[in-house]
Amino acid sequence: MWAYLSSPRFLRSILPAASLAVLLAAIFYIQPRTMSYFGLKLMLQYAVPIALATIAQMHIITVNDLDLSIGPFVGLTACIGATLLVSTPLLGLLALAACIGVYAGLGALVYWRNLPSIVVTLGMSFVWMGLSVLILPTPGGKAPVWIKAIMGYEFPFIPLPIIAATTIALVVHQGLMHSSYGAVLRGAGGNPKAIGRAGWSLLKSKMLMYALGGFFGVLSGLSLIGLTSAADAHIADRYTLYSIAGVILGGGEFVGGRVSPIGAVLGALTLTLTGSFLIFMKISPDWQIGAQGGILIIVLALRALIKRKEAMS
């Protein structure tokens, strides 16, 4: 039993949950009042959009690419949600669907021309930002009532962010880790040649994964305006960095299709909580992103240690 518990494989899989648990325990210790319905709700409010953006990024990372435009993209969908979706719902839905379509197209472009995804998505970040500014030149707009209702819903006993995060994690876990086609999609990141040799279309898998990335990006934007009520083109600029950090904190690897949806959501929660933790520690909010960077480095260092152990055994 001990052998299993100290095996690198187990340690690796438990790391994301352990990071979150340590952070949460520290918060509860410093500020016991947070151990309540409203305490948790308040601290984890923004966990839902961040978790969704992280899941979006994870889909792109699964096929060995990286999306540097997810932040501005979430911003754009938030802007669409707070304007078109309210004034002309049908047009709003069409616009959001078109965004997902563009994502699928990007996947195809990256695959056909063998382009570095970093540069392509970098270019797209300008495009998304530009579209946001066109749609909503100044901060404002108004979130649809139904989205606000969903995001403001109060479940008994367990706060909404926890239920939402759990649902997201389980649904994506089911789809990507347990469905039969999910195995093929992850395989396309692990060994594309093998997937090609087994007769699958790599183009299709790349397009689908990009489209899923776009889909969760849309959800992230909509859930975000459900919390903020209004939108702004720059509302989610930080999300690019958050989403990458979340995937890595969640145990995902940059290449090789080794990702974990549950881990990614845990990573997103960890990032969200860092802010509260620093406030309770009475550390200036100036250090918030620094602390996030620090946590990222510590987790990566732990992972490097586990890997070394793995290499030795």
Binding site: G123, M129, G130, V133
Partner: peptide, 26 residues
């Protein structure tokens, strides 16, 4: 052109340039 159009053009030009240059080597 408005700020939005400027950003969009910038992005599209980056993508056009990289697509034209191609992925070169695997």
């Amino acid at each position: 052109a408005s700020g939005g159009v400027r950003l969009i053009m910038t992005g599209l030009i980056i993508i056009a340039v990289i697509t034209a240059a191609g992925g070169e080597k695997q």
